[in-house]
Simulated scan of single mutants.
Amino acid sequence: MLDARPILFFDSGVGGLSILAPTRRAVPQAPIVYVADSAGFPYGVKDEAEIAGRVPALLGRLAERYAPRLIVIACNTASTIALAAVRYALDIPIVGTVPAIKPAAALSRTRTIGVLGTAATVRQAYVDDLAARFAADCHVIRHGSAALVTLAEAKLRGETVAPATVRDAVAPMLASPGADKLDTVALACTHFPLLADELALAFGPGVTFVDGGPGIARRVADLTRGQSFARTTPDVAVFTGAIGAGLEETLAKHGFGQCIPL
C-alpha cells in the first residue's frame, strides 16, 4: 500500500532548499512539506534560549498537522542548539544538519579549514566537539555572518547580489591569522550554498566548499529505504509569517505547487 506521509523540511527561511535539492534527487518520489519559520527569521542572531524553546514547540505543532514520516531540520543553527530536544520530544526520525567539519578536514591538504555559518552556530559547543573529534590536527577558522543569510534570501527573491557585498561579509575570515593557508571551507548555514558562485569569487581559486546536503540526502535515503511513497497533493511550502515577495515563483521552480501560511 502506498504511503502519502511527507518528509518535512524545516528552516528559519528558504536556505533549506540547498538541503532539499540533493534529497529530491535521492528520493524523487517522496512527497515534501517545506516549512520556513519566517515569523522567527533569522535564527542566527537570536540567543540560544529562544531557539531552544521555539524550535521543539513549533516542530511539535507541525508533526501533529502534517504527520510526517521523517523531519529534516535543514538549519545548522536550529540543529546545533535544539536537535537533542526535538528528538526527545517527537517519536519519529529526526535528521539534523550540522557543520560539515569532518569532510572539510578530510579534504584539506594545508590543514587549515574554515567554518562559515551564523554567529549562533559557530560559537556552539557542538561545533567545538566536531572540531575536536574530526579536525584536531587542523587550524579551524570560524566566522559568523548574518549578512550572508540576508543576501541568500534576496538572491532567491530574484534580486541581484553584488559580489562586493559577499566579499565584505567574509572579509573578517580572510583577515584571520593563518587564513592565507585556508583551502577548505565548511558552509555551516544552509543558506550559504545558494551563494556558491559569489563565495567562490570572494575566496578566490584554491578554496573548496563543502556542505551537509549530500550527507543529509544519503541519510534520508537510508531511513526511507524500502518504504512506499504516494504524492496525493502537490508539494507545499508553509510559512509561519510573511511570504517574501518573489519567493512563490522561486518555490514553484523548486517543485512546490502551493505556498500557504501556517
Rank of each mutant, 00 (worst) to 15 (best):
D3Q: 06
A4G: 04
A4N: 12
F9E: 01
F9C: 04
F10L: 08
V14D: 03
G15A: 09
I19P: 01
P22T: 01
R24G: 05
R24H: 07
R24E: 07
A26F: 08
V27C: 11
A30N: 04
P31F: 12
V33I: 08
V35G: 00
A36E: 04
D37R: 08
G40W: 10
F41T: 11
E48C: 13
A49Q: 10
I51D: 00
R54L: 12
L58C: 05
R61G: 04
A63T: 06
I71W: 00
A82P: 01
L83D: 01
A84L: 00
R87N: 04
Y88M: 13
A89E: 05
I92K: 02
V98C: 13
V98N: 09
K102G: 09
A106I: 09
R111T: 15
T112G: 09
I113G: 08
I113K: 08
I113T: 13
G114I: 02
G117N: 02
A132F: 02
F134T: 06
D137C: 04
V140Q: 08
R142M: 10
R142P: 02
G144Y: 02
G144F: 02
S145L: 08
A147N: 13
L148H: 06
L148Q: 08
V149F: 03
V149C: 04
E153A: 06
E153I: 05
L156N: 15
V161A: 11
V166I: 13
V166N: 12
D168A: 13
A169E: 02
P172Q: 14
M173V: 02
M173T: 01
S176C: 14
D180N: 09
K181W: 15
T184S: 02
T190M: 10
H191W: 01
F192N: 10
L194A: 14
L194T: 15
D197C: 14
G215T: 15
I216L: 09
I216M: 07
R218F: 15
V220A: 01
A221D: 13
G226V: 06
F229D: 12
R231I: 14
P234N: 15
T240Y: 00
I243N: 10
I243G: 04
A245F: 11
G246L: 09
L251D: 11
A252Q: 13
K253P: 09
G257D: 10
Q258A: 14
C259A: 13
C259W: 14
C259P: 04
